[in-house]
Simulated assay, not measured.
Amino acid sequence: MSSTAAQLLAERLGLADDELLEVLGADPLEVLGGELEHKPQLALLLALTEEPAARVGLPALQRWLRTSGPAGRPVELLLRRDFAAFEDALETLADRGFVVRRADRP
């Protein structure tokens, strides 16, 4: 993988630089140097998010990532590197669509 792949993932999900590094378990020099071949999570996350990005669009996918769902906020799953739970959250997105509910106000 290359820094271009990491950049694509960051843009697709709307991740900040520090979030991308955390998700990949990488340091900035690895990303800048394109030394990410040993990071299978990059290819996995690109593959997992390709179809949802095309289906719902990048703005909706980026908003979904930071919106609380049945398993919590998907960005938190990524930051914990719980890729199985993130994949489940993507399946929920595919099944239910992107649902935003208004918070109850007192």
Rank of each mutant, 00 (worst) to 15 (best):
M1N: 03
M1Q: 06
M1C: 10
S2R: 08
S2A: 12
S3P: 01
A5I: 00
A5W: 03
A6P: 11
L8H: 13
L8T: 14
L9W: 07
L9G: 14
E11V: 09
E11T: 14
E11K: 12
R12D: 07
L13S: 01
L13K: 03
G14F: 03
G14R: 09
L15H: 01
A16Y: 11
D17V: 11
D18E: 14
E19S: 00
L20E: 09
L20V: 06
L20R: 01
L21D: 13
V23F: 09
V23G: 10
V23T: 12
L24G: 04
L24N: 02
G25E: 03
P28F: 02
L29I: 12
L32H: 10
G33C: 07
G34W: 09
G34N: 05
E35K: 04
L36F: 05
L36G: 00
E37H: 03
E37Q: 07
E37F: 05
H38Y: 05
L42T: 01
L42K: 05
A43W: 06
L44Y: 14
L46S: 13
A47S: 15
A47G: 11
A47H: 03
L48K: 07
L48E: 12
T49N: 15
T49S: 11
E50D: 15
P52N: 06
R55D: 13
L58R: 15
L58I: 15
P59H: 02
P59S: 01
P59R: 01
A60G: 01
A60L: 14
Q62R: 14
R63Y: 10
W64F: 06
R66N: 08
T67W: 03
T67Y: 06
T67N: 15
S68M: 10
G69L: 02
G69M: 02
G69Y: 02
A71Y: 12
A71F: 12
G72A: 02
G72N: 04
G72L: 04
R73A: 14
R73N: 06
P74A: 05
P74E: 01
V75F: 00
E76K: 03
L77C: 04
L78M: 11
L79I: 13
L79N: 11
D82F: 00
F83G: 03
A85V: 00
A85F: 05
A85N: 02
F86G: 04
F86W: 07
E87S: 14
E87G: 11
E87T: 09
T92N: 08
A94W: 14
A94T: 14
D95G: 06
R96I: 02
F98P: 00
V99Q: 10
V99R: 13
V99K: 08
V100Y: 08
V100R: 14
A103G: 11
R105F: 10
R105C: 06
P106D: 08
P106N: 05
